[in-house]
Simulated assay, not measured.
Amino acid sequence: MTVRVLAAGDHFVLNRLLVAAMRREVPSGLAVGELTLPWPVVPFGPVGEVREASDVEDSLIEALRGVEVCVTQMAPLTERVLAEARDLRLFCVTRGGPVNANLAAATKAGVAVTFAPGRNAVATAEHTVALLLAATRRIPQTHADLAAGVWRGDYYVYDNVGPELEGSTVGLVGYGAIGSRVARILRGFGAEVLVHDPYVELEESVELPELLARSRFLSLHARATPETDAMIGAAELAALPRGSVVVNSARGSLLDYDALCDALESGHLFGAALDVFPEEPIPAGSRLLTTPNLVMTPHLAGGSKQTAANAARIAAEEVGRYTRGEPLAHLANPELFSP
């Protein structure tokens, strides 16, 4: 029996990667159609009732006619799409979480939703350390000066130089697939690593107040939940030693950005580096655009060729399990199969 599949890739997780991974996993029995979404050339945003997706409901509905399985990174699985996609039974999201899918509506419609945990763990960990070093050694600022023909010797003034990683304490808030890799890299620099994560037990685990008081560097890797919303605010930043560096490559909701700007402008923080923001793209007039000693990248920590390949492989493995009648490994709505 042939299973009709839609590969709804984009300009990062390419359709050719999705199709090739599915062909390796299921050599025969798939009829694969393709739809190319505009991300990241066109930013994602809210679509219907989902938070982060490409605004392609109309074209997706048309492409899903008669389709049983959809593999995608950014396609919106909304109530409107589900109402039209009557044959859909499996929606494979190639992201670390299915934030582009309405899980309640999918469950009600009998559609299983899977995701791709750990797909970008290595890329994000490496980018995190790159951000930390860039902020500490003023790399973007000094490059910009040199590119403008300005040689500034005052960067070498004692109060303008940052700390070394070796011998310093780095506090990690969150110790999942990314945080644990960051720890491994930083230990290679000779840093002492402290961890705050209520879900893991480690010798290096401490409560958040102790971590903040002891850490010269702070890197955020927690999940976005109601409990972690703005978990690092003015009081927490003030608890860090003066001259500390803060990095956030996890989720914008973890950090109070106004408090961060205040701490940078006052000189309490030596620097900060961000890959995620409360609003993306950053709106014109945001304080982040003028705050000193701040390094920013546009939510691309997970961007590597290996991440795209991993995403395609993990999703293809789920398609393989589905076609063989096996349990799905990364099911976001397990209640679909509850007795």
Results as ranks from 00 to 15, higher is better:
residue 62 E to D: 14
residue 61 I to Y: 00
residue 235 A to C: 00
residue 278 P to H: 11
residue 184 R to E: 15
residue 122 V to R: 13
residue 291 T to W: 01
residue 81 V to C: 07
residue 92 C to Q: 09
residue 300 L to D: 09
residue 147 A to G: 00
residue 289 L to H: 09
residue 261 C to Y: 01
residue 76 P to H: 06
residue 47 V to N: 09
residue 262 D to Q: 14
residue 44 F to I: 13
residue 306 Q to I: 12
residue 131 L to F: 03
residue 232 I to W: 02
residue 114 T to L: 12
residue 232 I to H: 01
residue 161 V to Q: 15
residue 27 P to N: 01
residue 288 L to A: 03
residue 163 P to N: 08
residue 96 G to T: 03
residue 338 S to P: 00
residue 308 A to E: 07
residue 321 R to M: 08
residue 151 W to E: 02
residue 301 A to G: 15
residue 183 A to S: 12
residue 73 Q to H: 13
residue 207 E to I: 03
residue 116 A to V: 11
residue 2 T to Q: 15
residue 29 G to M: 08
residue 67 V to Y: 05
residue 110 G to E: 12
residue 219 S to T: 15
residue 183 A to W: 08
residue 143 H to T: 13
residue 292 P to C: 07
residue 195 V to Q: 00
residue 246 V to F: 08
residue 200 V to Y: 01
residue 90 L to C: 09
residue 290 T to D: 13
residue 246 V to D: 04
residue 42 V to A: 14
residue 30 L to S: 02
residue 204 E to F: 04
residue 210 E to M: 06
residue 318 E to L: 08
residue 85 A to S: 08
residue 63 A to F: 01
residue 44 F to C: 13
residue 323 T to G: 04
residue 161 V to N: 03
residue 101 A to H: 09
residue 91 F to V: 07
residue 153 G to K: 12
residue 37 L to T: 04
residue 7 A to Y: 02
residue 289 L to D: 12
residue 285 G to Y: 10
residue 207 E to Y: 00
residue 253 S to L: 04
residue 51 R to N: 10
residue 237 L to K: 05
residue 185 I to R: 14
residue 296 M to E: 04
residue 164 E to K: 12
residue 184 R to T: 15
residue 62 E to H: 12
residue 255 L to I: 05
residue 205 S to P: 00
residue 235 A to N: 11
residue 321 R to L: 13
residue 45 G to M: 06
residue 304 S to F: 06
residue 220 L to P: 04
residue 296 M to C: 13
residue 107 T to S: 15
residue 226 P to V: 07
residue 23 R to V: 12
residue 78 T to D: 12
residue 118 G to T: 08
residue 72 T to H: 03
residue 172 L to D: 03
residue 108 K to E: 15
residue 320 G to H: 06
residue 181 R to L: 15
residue 77 L to F: 09
residue 338 S to D: 14
residue 203 E to N: 01
residue 153 G to V: 01
residue 139 I to S: 07
residue 265 E to T: 12
residue 334 P to Q: 05
residue 103 L to P: 10
residue 70 C to T: 02
residue 11 H to P: 00
residue 116 A to H: 03
residue 18 L to A: 08
residue 246 V to R: 04
residue 278 P to A: 10
residue 22 M to Y: 03
residue 329 A to V: 11
residue 154 D to R: 10
residue 14 L to A: 14
residue 255 L to M: 11
residue 134 A to V: 05
residue 5 V to A: 11
residue 37 L to V: 01
residue 238 A to H: 08
residue 113 V to H: 05
residue 251 R to C: 09
residue 321 R to H: 14
residue 138 R to N: 13
